Amino acid sequence: MAESSGGPKKLLWVMIILVLLSSAGAAAAIYMVMDQRDDNPGEAAEETAERQPPVFLTIEPFTVNLADDRQGTRLLYAGITLRVEDEETRDLLEQHMPQLRSRLLTILSGQEAGSLTSSQGKQQLASNIKARLSEPFDEDQPPLRLSEVLFTEFIVQ
């Protein structure tokens, strides 16, 4: 039989080298994961800094006569809250509240009771209100940043 030169010693050295290489690979992977985590907090902080609480403008509820239909005179009692993008838009709407309420009364009184009882009718009304209120009140007014029209009370009688 032929004698092998250092068989068990070679195997031991190969095992040690493999353990060291795998440890180095694991350390590199951990470093890369930790390095990515360090980059994300800055981005997350920027995102949270950009997020601001929503700005709402609550309008006193309306009671209006609806357009005549087959059932005679019908009433709508509606509470509306506007979600706006910033305080500047909110302040501008508050300054023009009489004009805003007049526009809302015009829109609401032109509705028919039958169209307002469905959710699709309410969504259409909300989009009509948003479009009408987005129109400028004055010639030199900055554009209004109106996000959403919310119905907080809605009764058709």
Rank of each mutant, 00 (worst) to 15 (best):
E3V: 11
S4P: 15
S5Y: 14
S5G: 07
G6C: 04
G6V: 04
K10F: 09
L11W: 10
W13K: 12
W13G: 13
V14L: 13
L18A: 14
S22W: 12
G25V: 13
A26K: 11
A27Q: 09
A29V: 05
I30L: 12
Y31A: 11
M32K: 12
V33D: 13
M34N: 14
D35S: 15
D35M: 15
R37Q: 13
D39T: 15
P41Q: 06
G42D: 01
E43W: 14
E43K: 13
R51L: 14
P53V: 11
P53W: 11
P53N: 08
V55S: 10
F56Q: 05
T58M: 12
T63G: 00
V64C: 00
A67N: 11
A67M: 13
D69W: 07
R70F: 06
L76V: 05
Y77T: 01
A78C: 05
L82G: 05
V84W: 04
E85W: 07
D86E: 08
E87P: 02
E87M: 13
L93V: 04
M97K: 07
M97H: 00
P98R: 09
E112T: 03
G114W: 01
L116W: 06
T117F: 05
S118W: 03
S119E: 04
Q120K: 05
K122G: 05
Q123P: 01
L125P: 01
A126K: 00
S127E: 08
K130I: 03
L133M: 04
L133T: 06
L133K: 00
L133H: 06
S134Q: 07
S134V: 07
E135I: 09
F137V: 00
E139Q: 09
D140K: 03
P143T: 10
P143G: 02
L146S: 01
L146T: 05
L146N: 01
L146V: 04
T152V: 06
V156S: 06
Q157G: 00
Q157P: 03
